[in-house]
Design a protein around this nucleic acid. Structure first.
Length: 197
DNA sequence: CTTATGATGTACT
DNA sequence: GTACATCATAAGG
């Protein structure tokens, strides 16, 4: 089965975005409980030739994580209240990342619900900021390394706070569309939605 | 199901 | 001042 190593994330963000569909994120919360979710929606962002990317112009303190090591996280705060999670791609110093836009619960859904009181299961992870809220991810995870034995900011409770696993079933089919919520680069079909589960 | 709108902080022109 | 890789809520069909 696929090895999700440094080289795997160092590829073109559009390829990684497609290959992330079906992968599982495993979150260990500060209290030791765990939840697993399957990624079903992603978007690719690149530094060059991408007017919608945070790194489309120049390097700044905010977008600097996009220039980091492949397999680390770029988490940003937006609209005054939301966090979004990206996985950095392409070689270090080449800005690119994949926004995780949607997922479905696989295990431990009760721990996700606990963070979103009153929200139906189907709405827990179907948006980039809903996903970070349900998984309790924020700026503490900016630059977090998914591949290192110890990711960085928050490794209490004797387990890795966030891990990623390859698909346990063969990669699903997908559909490509324009990205959501952008005003430039709408001609690029860099949003990928898993189909056929 | 759909569309419209306010909330709220930071980066950037 | 304006835009922003968004969401919850309210109102209409």
């Amino acid at each position: 089965m696929t090895r999700l190593d440094r080289a795997w994330f160092a590829r073109d963000a559009r390829e990684v975005a497609v290959d992330l569909l079906g992968c599982t994120l495993v979150r260990r919360f500060p209290d030791g409980s765990e939840a697993a979710v399957r990624i079903v929606e992603t978007e690719a962002y690149r530094g060059t030739d991408d007017p919608a990317s945070h790194a489309g112009r120049r390097r700044t303190p905010r977008n600097d994580p996009m220039f980091g090591r492949p397999g680390t996280l770029y988490v940003y705060f937006t609209y005054g209240m939301h966090y979004c999670m990206n996985i950095v791609c392409e070689p270090e110093e080449t800005p690119a990342a994949v926004l995780i836009r949607g997922a479905v619960p696989v295990r431990g859904a009760e721990h996700l619900r606990a963070r979103r009181p009153g929200v139906p299961d189907r709405l827990l992870l179907n948006g980039p900021a809903k996903l970070t809220k349900s998984l309790e991810l924020d700026l503490a995870f900016n630059r977090y390394d998914l591949l290192a034995a110890n990711g960085g900011p928050d490794e209490a409770c004797g387990g890795k706070a966030l891990r990623i696993l390859p698909p346990d079933s063969p990669p699903p089919g997908y559909r490509a569309t324009p990205r959501i919520g952008i005003s430039a680069g709408t001609d690029l079909l860099w949003r990928f939605v898993a189909e056929g589960f």
